[in-house]
Design a protein around this nucleic acid. Structure first.
Lengths: 348, 348
DNA sequence: GAATCGTGAGAAAGCGTTTTCTCAGAGCGT
DNA sequence: ACGCTCTGAGAAAACGCTTTCTCACGATTC
């Protein structure tokens, strides 16, 4: 195979800085200088270098560059489930905003496996200049311990006690209360909440909001049913929902609501005549379900781009551990056709 | 600021291989050997190294590793539009499959800007061990020139004349013909195709399929209307569709169809009573539109994971430029409620 | 018991950049 | 004309790792 020391260099190897240095008759250093435009170099030489680089189609190797500069121009994002339109939208917003500043994004999907999150985040952080942790399912204690490790870190839908990591959150507690209020004002007396993943902080917020709602409306029945965060889990809850006897259903999110809608349709239960259903998030498709879904709209597109802005701020500050912005968004109730007044007298 | 040469090393710096070497009283080399389990090292020493590594929480720096090994354990994916559920699904399938083998994925969204694709792909390739190019909009000539540059490359919805880059494609031509056939067999005589992005290869396939359809059905009217690939462009085409007088509409994809559905609804045109509409792709939400969308189902989840398998094959072969698999999927028509027989006599 | 082999660990050479350090030569003032 | 500063380019160190090369030491063999 001929693993000799010299020769076979040009044949195989990608063109490197050494090649253009040789062609231009200058040193590596000079090539680097003209490529980066840092120090002043003689215009004649610079032109020669540029010509050589162009002719050889030289493109600096980012890995070497990263090692020397100590930065990768890449950020990582960890999401619990890439199939969820909410996280897709955040990813997209983040990716586009970051690209505008010359940064790329590396994705990691924990598939809702809580124990993987810390590992994925750590790995991502080592490869990237920062990490955005999206709706982490891990415990507060674990998050608190992990956060400093990850440092240029942005949290979405989660906060830490230490105020030096920025967070973006949505006031799910308020949103769910408004939805419940909407159902009640339509005349519903028996509500049910189809809850989300056990370790989801946003689910806990919803539960807290509903607790508060209960104290304000002691006369209203409100059941809690276990569920998940995706389409299937909504679909699987159909029986339980019907059995509950509730007429107003608050689904964890739009996906769950859509699954439920389809399940109810299969069972011949009419929405909203027999049962009213609400979602959460207002994903783009919520307008086009049958019937169009009443939901609480989260400004999802802004989340991604704001996450990048917060990340960039930290990267630029580099060091001075200032206290960081804690952004909170208020969802806005979007009334459509999946909610209506309940039937006047429930059959019997 | 004290930019001296020594000291201030432990304070600031991330723990590196040198630190654990020192702590264990061995050389860098030995630490590396232990961490990678390559060469044989004395069990006693190995234990000492491992203990030191654990105590220091040492994690090898991936950038240094990448530079030394010439691989990044990362692949890139370039998509025209991350907002499109089809590409989201491919990304997800790819990401999950790659993660299983310890690879991460870097994303690049060209935002349908054709001229950006080559640049993004090139950049991605330099940072990664391979690139998957998803429905590239660039010209055949450009693609042909770019392909060898990108080498470990997988194409989705596009092929090259050189057979040494694997490609995954969907037979859009056949799918659209089957949909047209479906409309005709329902009794439609006047069809219209709402075409997609001009530079989309899959759009050209559809056009070719429809040409073929025409020759088999000279009696059927088939108009071609310009459109786009997303929700909005479908919505914007509403007027043109109504003006066309067609009763059977073949939308470029499900998104366009959904936009059209909403536009028609706003205008009071009933689907399927007045106009039948078909989509393409069968994205998860197609079942839940009003009415549920007749479409051609593409096995979208498989695409992503198969793309990874093809990529992995190439990475493993590393060199021997064998001819690569060209996979083709056949869409399956999914008849739902957005298509029906046309009104017997069109008003006048 | 001397020559040979094998084992395993350290020294050092990469990997491809950037950046500091060093120094030659030009320009300037006196 | 001498020494001074200043500009700009090359040499070399650094980034953090892997891997080849080298060599010391103990074990084997005749």
């Amino acid at each position: 195979m001929g693993r000799g020391h010299m020769a076979r260099r040009n044949t195989n190897r990608r063109v490197g800085i050494a090649d253009v240095a040789e062609k231009a008759g200058v040193s590596h250093a000079t090539v680097s200088r003209v490529m980066n435009g840092n120090a002043a170099v003689d215009p004649g030489i610079a032109a020669r270098v540029r010509a050589a680089a162009a002719e050889l189609k030289y493109q600096p190797n980012p890995v070497g560059r990263s090692l020397a500069l100590g930065k990768t121009d890449t950020i990582g994002i960890v999401v619990p489930d890439l199939a969820n339109p909410t996280f897709q939208a955040i990813l997209r917003g983040l990716s586009i905003a970051a690209a505008q500043d010359g940064y790329r994004v590396l994705i990691a999907d924990s598939s809702e496996v809580t124990s993987e999150e810390a590992i994925l985040a750590g790995e991502a952080r080592r490869r990237c200049d920062g990490v955005v942790l999206c709706a982490p399912r891990m415990s507060d204690a674990e998050l608190e311990e992990l956060a400093p490790t990850l440092h240029p870190l942005v949290l979405i839908n989660r906060t830490t006690v230490a105020t030096n990591t920025p967070s973006l959150s949505v006031d799910y507690g308020q949103g769910i209360q408004e939805l419940a209020q909407h159902l009640v004002s339509l005349g519903h007396q028996r509500l049910a909440f189809l809850s989300g993943p056990e370790h989801s902080a946003s689910n806990r917020q919803r539960l807290a909001g509903l607790d508060q709602f209960r104290t304000g409306h002691p006369d209203i029945e409100l059941q809690m049913l276990d569920g998940g965060s995706n389409f299937d889990s909504g679909h699987e809850s159909t029986e339980a929902i019907i059995a509950s006897g509730a007429t107003g259903i608050l689904a964890f999110n739009d996906l769950v609501a859509m699954g439920l809608l389809s399940g109810l349709h299969e069972r011949g239960v009419r929405v909203p005549e027999d049962i009213s259903v609400t979602g959460f998030d207002d994903i783009p498709f919520a307008k086009y379900t049958t019937p169009p879904l009443t939901t609480a709209a989260v400004p999802i597109n802004e989340l991604g781009s704001l996450a990048w802005r917060r990340m960039r701020e930290q990267i630029q500050q580099a060091g001075e551990a200032a206290t960081q912005a804690q952004d909170e968004f208020s969802p806005r109730v979007e009334i459509r056709k999946s909610t209506a007044a309940p039937a006047l007298k429930p059959a019997s």
